[in-house]
Design a protein around this nucleic acid. Structure first.
Length: 199
DNA sequence: CAATAGATTCACT
DNA sequence: GTGAATCTATTGG
């Protein structure tokens, strides 16, 4: 399937988040292709969302959130876990925005993934934002890549559209939960998918 | 500078 | 359910 182009990412953040469901996150490691189908995402928009890294303005870490759509935003969380986001915002947006990839279902390069997730059952390989980066071999070196660019080793490819009746939306989970009025519908996941962490 | 919270996961109880 | 692991950006003195 073709990789998602710039125009895909250069739209309303919530629309892009919704449409990322069912697409394939693809990474080439040493000429090997590893991939998973995106089953859970979370949108972070700077202007109204004080949980967003972009809320308080530009810093060295979050700068790409203010820039080109389609660029990867990778950062270390809790000193241990790499989080993978992709910038998604209209070209003229006056706010920073990115979408956190929270879970994928492994589809290609399973032996390589297995070696990176040794001792874990397959259902736990990529069921979580820190787990999927581990499974696919994504870390700081993938920060700032243009995922819409032709040569990027990290990209997202189009998938079959997920029907609306299979999509669920809900609030954040965990420690960083905004006020209820602002906490929905920023998380999207495929209904009944066994890799979705919570619902 | 020192302190702290954090878009989490894992091992253990 | 609870706590540890481990490091960076940000906040406060």
């Amino acid at each position: 399937m073709p990789r998602l182009d710039r125009a895909f990412y250069a739209r309303d953040t919530l629309i892009v988040a919704r449409e990322l469901l069912g697409c394939s996150l693809v990474h080439w490691i040493d000429g090997q292709r590893v991939a998973g189908q995106i089953v859970e995402v979370e949108a972070y928009m700077g202007r109204d969302d004080d949980a967003s890294h972009g809320y308080r303005g530009v810093t060295p870490r979050n700068a790409v959130m203010f820039g080109e759509p389609g660029v990867s935003y990778v950062y270390l969380c809790y000193g241990i876990h790499w989080m993978l986001n992709v910038v998604a915002r209209p070209p003229d947006a006056d706010y920073p925005a990115a979408i956190l990839l929270r879970a994928v279902e492994p589809t290609e390069g399973l032996p390589l993934m297995a070696s990176r997730r040794e001792g874990q059952p397959q259902r736990l390989w990529a069921n979580g934002p820190g787990r999927l980066t581990r499974a696919l071999g994504i870390d700081q070196t993938q920060h700032g890549l243009d995922m819409a660019g032709r040569a990027s080793p990290l990209t997202i490819e189009a998938g079959l559209a997920v029907p609306e009746d299979q999509v669920e939306r809900g609030p954040r989970i965990g420690i960083n939960v905004p006020e209820p009025s602002r906490s929905w519908p920023w998380r999207f996941w495929i209904k009944d998918n066994r890799f979705v962490s919570k619902g």
